[in-house]
């Protein structure tokens, strides 16, 4: 099942400059693992060495930050879109 993933500018060097790539998986964790198989090195940018999503990375499932859902274990289904977005400052 192909899930589209939006890649932020700082990571596009790893995806040959592609803004949207496809990954497989039924949870956020599996999607990230799948991305890392296609684009080696992506996972360590998104997750720390304890496998948690890094403090300054926001991962969205459609319009919801996965921190409000089940974090890495959030289920992903056909038709969903995942976005990786750096945290930004106040306003």
């Amino acid at each position: 099942m192909a899930i589209p993933v939006r890649i932020p500018t700082p990571l596009r060097k790893l995806t040959q400059n592609q803004e949207i790539v496809e990954a497989d998986g039924t949870t956020i964790r599996e999607v990230i693992d799948s991305l890392d198989r296609t684009y080696p090195g992506l996972k360590e940018r998104i997750c720390d060495d304890q496998d948690h999503i890094r403090r300054f990375v926001n991962v969205f499932l459609n319009d919801e930050d996965v921190r409000f859902l089940k974090e890495s274990e959030t289920p992903v289904a056909s038709g969903d879109e995942v976005s990786i977005v750096p945290a930004i400052a106040g306003g």
Partner: peptide, 9 residues
């Protein structure tokens, strides 16, 4: 604005 390696500010 963000580190390419760990997304740190």
């Amino acid at each position: 604005h963000v580190c390419e390696f760990d997304f740190g500010p």
